[in-house]
């Protein structure tokens, strides 16, 4: 059992650990971590903001931009005439920026927006003043809190109750540099870094929990929250945060559409189909 790495460091390699450690420390920590993860997930579902409220003009603007992009991407399925017609129409509409929710120069609101006019007067330059953006930021902050509070609590709990002894042996050797982190409460100078204390089990399981949660909560509605904070805020509301100037986007898109060549997706279709079914 004595590995060569341990010998090289010069530690007395084999310790006998109390088997009760497994049942009284290792299992409780793991169970608590899994349960906290589950609870956090459901809490996130509960505090998730309702469907983000967007004024109709904003949605129109978003959808016209999307429409232009889709035309660029999937234009090949159209007939040449159809593509040309759509291309001209979209280039014109986007070029005039007719459906921009908040006009840049004259602050005029498009006729759709008469009812929303009062709230939409200012330019959405400052994301803090936009109610939607602040909503998104609130939910982001809540998500962060829901992540950090239990982490801090568990870390405190582990450090307080399970410190000062070696819990387990890692199956892989580590360099001496990890010693300080892994054996924080253990006062031995030349114990091999493979012997780890409970806080290191906490860290290992913290990083490894994601796949487990994916298996446990294999539910499309819940999954997005488990994967973490990193991709959440950007996915939530496309373009609503007011970072990009929609009018600019539209004009650029219009230019792109104007010069977009038509590729025929139906060329040689007969041969392809024959090849598939022959």
């Amino acid at each position: 059992m004595v590995s060569t790495a341990a010998v090289a460091i010069g530690a007395i390699a084999e310790l006998t650990l109390d088997p009760n450690l497994k049942y009284n420390v290792l299992l409780p920590i793991s169970i608590v971590m899994i349960l906290t993860g589950l609870i956090r997930n459901y809490v996130m579902v509960l505090i998730r903001p309702n469907i983000p409220v967007m004024p109709r003009v904003k949605i129109t603007e978003q959808q016209y931009i999307n429409k232009g992009q889709i035309l660029l991407q999937n234009g090949a399925v159209l007939t040449p005439d159809g593509f040309k017609m759509r291309k001209e129409l979209m280039a014109k509409l986007l070029g005039e920026a007719q459906f921009v929710a908040v006009k840049q120069n004259n602050n005029a609101i498009t006729n759709d927006a008469a009812d929303q006019g009062a709230t939409q007067q200012q330019k959405p330059e400052n994301p803090l003043s936009d109610p939607n953006a602040s909503d998104a930021m609130m939910s982001m902050a809540k998500g962060n809190l829901a992540n950090y509070i239990p982490q801090t609590l568990i870390m405190w709990w582990v450090n307080h109750f399970f410190a000062g002894f070696v819990l387990m042996k890692l199956p892989f050797p580590l360099t001496v540099r990890f010693k300080e982190m892994l054996q924080s409460g253990v006062m031995t100078n030349d114990l091999d870094a493979r012997w780890a204390s409970s806080i290191s089990w906490y860290f290992i399981s913290m990083f490894g929990m994601n796949p487990l949660f994916n298996l446990i909560l294999n539910d499309a509605t819940l999954q997005s929250d488990v994967s973490g904070i990193s991709n959440d805020p950007t996915m939530g509301m496309p373009g609503a945060a007011g970072g990009i100037n929609p009018e600019q986007t539209m004009r650029e898109l219009s230019n792109d559409i104007t010069i977009a060549p038509y590729e025929n997706g139906y060329e040689g279709l007969e041969e392809k189909i024959l090849k598939i079914y022959s």
Binding site: K22, L26, M168, L170, I204, S205, F207, G208, P211
Partner: peptide, 17 residues
Amino acid sequence: FRELAGFLMTWTFVYAL
């Protein structure tokens, strides 16, 4: 890296058990 972390977790856990 996600899978590696998960693998490491169960590996250490079962190894210790």
